[in-house]
Amino acid sequence: MTTILSAKALTYVSEAPRRFGRRKHEAFKLGPFDLTIEKAETVAIIGGNRSGKSVLARLLCGAMQPTDGEIIFHQDAPHSSTAAKQQWQKQQVRMIFQRSSESLNPALTIGGILHEPLKLNTDLSYAQREEKIAAVLSQVGLLREHYFFYPHMLSDGQQQRVAMARALILNPSVIVADEPFAALDPSVRSQTVNLILQLQRDLGLSFVFISHNLGIVRHIADRMVVMNEGQIIEAGRTDTLFRWPKHEITQRLISAHQSLIPQASDGKRLK
Rank of each mutant, 00 (worst) to 15 (best):
T2C: 09
K8N: 09
K8P: 04
K8I: 14
L10Q: 02
T11M: 12
Y12L: 14
Y12K: 15
Y12E: 05
S14F: 09
R23E: 05
K24N: 08
L30R: 04
G31V: 03
G31H: 02
P32T: 06
P32V: 08
L35T: 06
T36E: 11
T36K: 13
E38N: 13
K39I: 09
K39G: 05
V43D: 08
N49E: 14
S51E: 05
V55N: 03
L56V: 04
L60A: 10
A63N: 07
Q65M: 10
D68S: 14
D68A: 15
E70S: 07
I71S: 05
I72T: 15
F73D: 01
H74M: 01
Q75E: 15
S81A: 07
A83H: 15
A84I: 09
W88P: 04
K90T: 13
Q91M: 14
Q91W: 09
Q92Y: 14
R94W: 07
I96A: 03
S100V: 05
S100F: 07
N105Q: 13
P106A: 05
A107T: 11
A107D: 12
T109I: 12
G111L: 07
G112I: 08
H115Q: 14
L118D: 04
K119D: 14
D123Y: 10
L124T: 08
S125K: 11
S125M: 12
S125R: 12
A127W: 06
K132T: 15
I133L: 12
A134R: 09
A135I: 07
S138I: 10
S138F: 10
Q139V: 04
V140M: 11
G141Y: 00
E145N: 11
Y147F: 15
Y147V: 01
Y150F: 15
P151H: 05
M153T: 09
R161M: 13
A163I: 06
A163R: 00
M164G: 01
M164P: 00
A165E: 11
A165M: 12
R166T: 03
L168G: 01
L170P: 04
S173C: 10
V176S: 02
E179I: 08
E179T: 09
P180D: 02
F181Y: 07
F181Q: 01
F181E: 00
A182P: 09
P186Y: 08
Q191E: 13
I196W: 06
I196H: 01
Q198K: 15
R201K: 15
D202M: 10
V208K: 00
F209Q: 04
N213K: 06
L214V: 02
I216L: 05
I216M: 01
I220T: 05
I220L: 03
I220R: 04
A221G: 05
D222Q: 10
M224Q: 03
M227K: 02
N228A: 04
N228F: 06
I233N: 02
R237M: 11
L241S: 01
R243Q: 14
H247G: 05
I249V: 14
I249D: 09
L253K: 06
I254M: 08
A256G: 00
Q258G: 09
I261A: 08
P262Y: 00
Q263K: 15
S265M: 10
R269G: 07
L270Q: 15
K271R: 14
